[in-house]
Nucleic acid binder design. Structure first.
Length: 486
DNA sequence: ATGTTC
């Protein structure tokens, strides 16, 4: 049981919005928190800082562990945390990437304006809800895949969707890793994970996952917005979901295996939830290959859901989806481990960047960016709650100097799910949101109450701090119109 | 987040 005990953790101010836990005891390096005083007051309320300090015990971590402005307590490693770990001498840690491997977000543009939809919101939300399976254990767009097909999804990612008419080359060109993470070996995935995954490709899941039709409400940077193809009052579609039971099972399986095969390493760590394997050990490499399978599964999952949304829009607006301008802006991962090169202590070094509840935010110039964004900086997609809206940011140079090319991923909860259910009632919440022009449909009343806007921190403040730190700059704010969830 | 308490 984790108990807040933050009084024992001392923070030193380094610069505006940058705080440091100095390296002491078993800490190999310091830890840094990137937050305003307001956000820091929230971060101190749970075990985030202790977990952040614990991550600095991981062998090969350098030069410091990071907590982003939206950080909160997670499984072993904070959500909103980033660790760069040496690719030769370091470790890889499943709990530091998270259970929902490649939980992430994509944004689909349209050439429609709010007025084109106004009056048909209820019809649209109903059709989207009918077309996209939501909630736990409810089936999937792709039906039940054969074992062989699932393994192809794991190896090929969005290329599998392309071959079956669910995706276009343009979609692949506008996804992190072009929608295909190399080094994905399905023989490293357990039969239990495969059994779950076969039934779940093209399904939204539960919790904070959603599909949302949004209106571009505010533009902060006209030039970048133009380059991203965004303008005021335009309709866009945001999809927030992950690798479902497939990735969850992979994480569970490898937490057990890694803890068992690397007991001595585990004994040196302050929390067994940080269980880690040397990157070049069999368990470490098998985990990485299996994690990559889940990454590909999640991209394919979001692709199939976007495809279903395109078909619904086509029906409602009476045009083919390509005539509706329904192109993919970008798709970004929030929970991943990735081998990258970063300038650390004066040298270019190969590291496994662990991003858990953190978005890659590469600036212009990084070779990994697709041609569309290499001169601009990548789009960063940050989902908010169903009442308060979401953001598009742009990757900035300081992200490479401060946070290994990362920024925040969302608002973070301010209260427990249980507390939210006590405080709100689904029907009443839906009526109130409808008065504001927001149409919500969920499979479960409990989920709607749990996801009440008031249960979340202030995303505006998270994004403001990202912008001021120069790690991710505000481009546009998006507000919800239709939202479906589990 | 999650066949929602291994």
């Amino acid at each position: 049981m984790l108990r807040p005990s933050m009084s024992e953790i001392e923070l030193q101010r380094v610069a505006d919005y940058i705080w440091e836990i100095p390296a002491k005891g078993g800490m190999r390096v310091p830890a840094r928190v990137f937050a305003s005083e307001t956000l820091l007051a929230g971060i101190r309320q749970d075990a985030t800082l202790r977990q952040l300090r614990n991550t600095t015990y991981l062998p090969g971590i350098y030069p410091y562990a990071c907590a982003l402005p939206d950080a909160h307590q997670g499984y072993g490693f904070p959500v909103g945390g980033v660790a760069a770990i040496d690719a030769e001498d370091g470790v890889i840690s499943p709990g530091s990437i998270g259970f929902d491997i490649n939980c992430g977000v994509r944004l689909c543009r349209t050439n429609l304006k709010y007025d084109d939809l106004h009056g048909q919101e209820q019809q649209l939300v109903n059709q989207l809800f009918a077309a996209v399976p939501t909630g736990l254990g409810v089936g999937s767009i792709a039906g039940t895949l054969s074992a062989d097909e699932l393994d192809q999804v794991a190896r090929l990612g969005m290329r599998w969707a392309l071959e079956r008419g669910y995706a276009t080359e343009d979609d692949l060109a506008h996804c992190e890793d072009e929608g295909v993470r190399p080094g994905a070996d399905p023989t490293c995935v357990s039969p239990e994970a495969k059994a779950r995954g076969r039934k779940q490709l093209g399904s939204l899941g539960s919790g904070n996952h959603f599909l949302e039709v949004q209106r571009v409400a505010e533009i902060f940077d006209e030039q970048t917005a133009r380059q991203y193809g965004l303008q005021r009052d335009q309709l866009v579609i945001m999809i927030h979901c992950g690798s479902r039971g497939y990735g969850h099972q992979i994480c569970s399986d490898y937490l057990k295996r890694v803890a068992h095969e690397h007991r001595r390493l585990l004994a040196e760590l302050p929390d067994r939830e940080l269980a880690a394997a040397p990157v070049n050990s069999p368990a470490g490499q098998d985990y990485y290959q299996a994690m990559n399978c889940a990454i590909n599964f999640a991209w394919c999952n979001r692709q199939l859901i976007m495809h279903a949304a395109r078909e619904v829009f086509s029906t409602i607006f009476g045009k083919r989806w390509d005539r509706l301008g329904m192109t993919l802006l970008y798709d970004v991962a929030h929970n991943i481990g990735k081998r990258e090169t970063h300038l650390i202590a004066g040298a270019q070094r190969e590291v496994y960047v662990h991003r858990k509840g953190a978005t890659r935010a590469f600036p212009a110039g990084r070779a990994e960016l697709p041609p569309a964004y290499r001169q601009v900086g990548q789009p960063v997609l940050i989902p908010g709650s169903m009442g308060t809206g979401s953001y598009v940011l742009k990757g900035q140079a300081s992200s490479l100097e401060l946070t290994f090319g990362s920024t925040a991923h969302g608002a973070g909860r301010v209260m427990s799910r249980r507390q939210a259910k006590r405080q709100w009632q689904a029907d009443e919440l839906q009526r109130e949101l409808k008065r504001q022009g927001i149409y919500v449909r969920g499979r479960s009343k409990a989920t709607i109450a749990e996801e009440a806007p008031g249960a979340y921190k202030d995303l505006d403040e998270v994004v403001r701090v990202s912008d001021e730190l120069g790690i991710g700059a505000r481009v546009a704010k998006l507000v919800p119109i239709c939202n479906i969830k589990g």
